[in-house]
Design a protein around this nucleic acid. Structure first.
Lengths: 349, 349
DNA sequence: TTTAGCACTCTGTTGGTTAGAGTGCTAAGC
DNA sequence: GCTTAGCACTCTAACCAACAGAGTGCTAAA
């Protein structure tokens, strides 16, 4: 669907204007504010043409033009160029509040708020999904009685722990030995394999180790986290300042969508396979039933591997250029922070 | 401000009716639905009297009566009795979804959602505030290189950890010795004292221990958590279903209040000194500038000590009886769960 | 192909009218 | 003196009509 260069320019002007002001764009406004060297009547004809093609629409007869989802799509695909301003943007925000400091939870929450603050929309972050069983190191600490703390250090350097209770007491020496054994095994086998082998090999007298192994296996699932806990939404209240949510019903629908973490997770993960940053305009996304909302999604990495997604949710009338830049910037920032955490202690401070 | 028994009954009827229906209560409605043996005219006189005294008010001349904050206050203080139904309530909800399972974060989030679901309002939980430096046990685990994981077991049995980097390497043996030393010292001294003493006692050759001590002291603050992270709000979207928030502005104000975790924290902690469950009606609370909202706050314990607060936020037109029951029930439930965690491993499963 | 002009349509606002709800007051009844 | 019936009064919410303004679509001319 190629438009002429002139029509393309006009489509861009209409969308730019609408995104900026939020009011339907009249031919006369276009004529005054942009220098096309055309009269409002001509612009009117062209706009009618663009409407014919499905890029624009009409709230009612005597109203100006408004972009359709298809219009936004075209706009994003061919009219928004990010690279030009990426550098400048980086400078502008390098002084932004630093993320990090606290634990992973806090980092994710900070990141979602960061996205929200920069984009003036809602920020969403999905916490790192470690490929199950990718542990670099598992440590056991005997606390008191039969209580043992299992510490998992994941492949991307994140530390998580789980407290368990054993049926029998076990001394720290034995726990250390078991930890070293596991570390060696983990290089070539999965936890589940090791567990199976151990069950066959160890006799009844070593029951406590079998239990320890079972609990470790269990715990590895637990620390992996419930899906719903891995989605962080920041700045939900400020999205509602956009006039498109002035309607109470729309407001509530959006808020409910934000609370349905599971769906959000699905939605963001959809784009994990795609290259770079992906934009879903309005009805383009299957999960997010909310009409009139767009989603800009990116990915972040740890040690070079994609470990999570993050994005911005706002009205279809969104500052896409800015949103894309913010997502891009934040994803790189977050990746850098995770990498720093990962390498800390290996290469010194 | 004592009302006669009859007037009290009528005030109660008005408030009950208003809480139930949300529409201003007319004298005729009161006459039909309640059996006072009085005509609507008499009821009208009495309601005018109650208005005179400040318990009721009038949206406009030709509307029914609506309770004032003072009215609600009287209602709660003298007309709501909880005990009668507490048992029955317990039965009704003992089959409710169990809390717990995940880590502390997850538990708090679950609890806030639990409160929200049962009360049909927003649920708020403030995570346990450990008195600073109240550690039962501190453990160090050498991970790799100069990286050390510090594990804190707090007085209420919660486990938290922090990863640090040392300037020099240190072996696990030494870490264990240091851990035992700390545990002994902690029985009679604060971390800060121990740190000071250590700095004086240890010479330059033991610099790494001084660093370890410093980092531990630092970390004890970090794991203590940033205040803002300790407030969990559940069910924010569903409060907005109440007709009093049909107005967009009110909706936004409330949502912003929910996002201002710091203020929420202050607000809930205000009631920590009070006995039992406390209700703030409308403008009674100084922090929460939101008019038209009430707050029911309770406390929960671990090992017998109050460690956190939790509550329900909704419109002043709230089912107070139910809300109080829900808060009461949840606080006991949460206390029980924390106690279970605490004692696990000491007395066996 | 572009443009000026104009009729047409739709929206949002304003003002006026009306029905209904519920009170406050007065005067009569127990 | 308390209660009640009756009625006038007030305020709201809904409906309607009128109207100004915005912006288009179309026609005809440049």
């Amino acid at each position: 669907m190629a438009l002429g260069e002139r029509n393309e320019k006009i489509l861009q002007a209409v969308i730019d204007s609408y995104i900026l002001s939020g009011i339907p764009v009249a031919s006369s406004v276009l004529c005054q504010r942009y220098d096309f060297g055309l009269s409002s009547a001509t612009l009117r004809n062209i706009m009618a043409e663009l409407e014919e093609m499905g890029f624009l629409t009409h709230p009612h007869t005597s109203a100006g033009r408004v972009p359709t989802d298809k219009g936004y799509r075209y706009y994003i695909d061919t009219l928004v160029s990010v690279e030009d301003e990426a550098e400048e943007f980086e400078d502008r925000f390098s002084a932004a509040p630093r993320l990090g400091g606290g634990d992973l939870h806090a980092l994710m929450e900070d990141a979602s708020r960061f996205l929200a603050a920069l984009s003036r929309n809602a920020g969403v972050v999905v916490a790192p999904a470690e490929p199950e069983g990718s542990y670099r190191h598992i440590e056991f600490v005997r606390l008191r009685g039969r209580q043992v703390l299992i510490i998992f250090v994941t492949a991307s350097g994140l530390v998580q722990n789980k407290l368990i209770d054993l049926d029998e007491s076990i001394d720290q020496q034995a726990l250390n030995t078991f930890s070293r054994f596991l570390d060696e095994e983990l290089e070539s086998h999965s936890l589940s394999d090791i567990r199976k082998r151990l069950q066959e090999k160890l006799g009844e007298e070593k029951r406590v180790f079998i239990q320890l192994m079972d609990e470790t296996y269990q715990a590895s699932h637990d620390v992996h986290g419930r899906d719903a806990e891995k989605v962080f939404v920041g700045g939900a209240a400020q999205v509602l300042d956009h006039p498109e949510f002035a309607n109470v019903e729309k407001m509530k629908t959006l808020l409910r969508a934000f609370e349905d973490k599971y769906k959000l997770l699905k939605l963001l993960d959809m784009s994990i396979a795609a290259e770079g940053i992906k934009v879903f305009v309005g009805s383009e996304n299957p999960y997010f039933e909310m009409q009139g909302c767009s989603l800009v999604v990116g990915k972040y990495r740890a040690a070079g591997n994609v470990v999570g997604t993050l994005g911005v949710i706002g009205p279809t009338r969104m500052q896409y250029r800015q949103a894309i830049q913010v997502v891009d910037y934040t994803s790189r920032l977050l990746s850098r922070i995770l990498d720093e955490r990962l390498h800390r202690g290996i290469e010194g401070k």
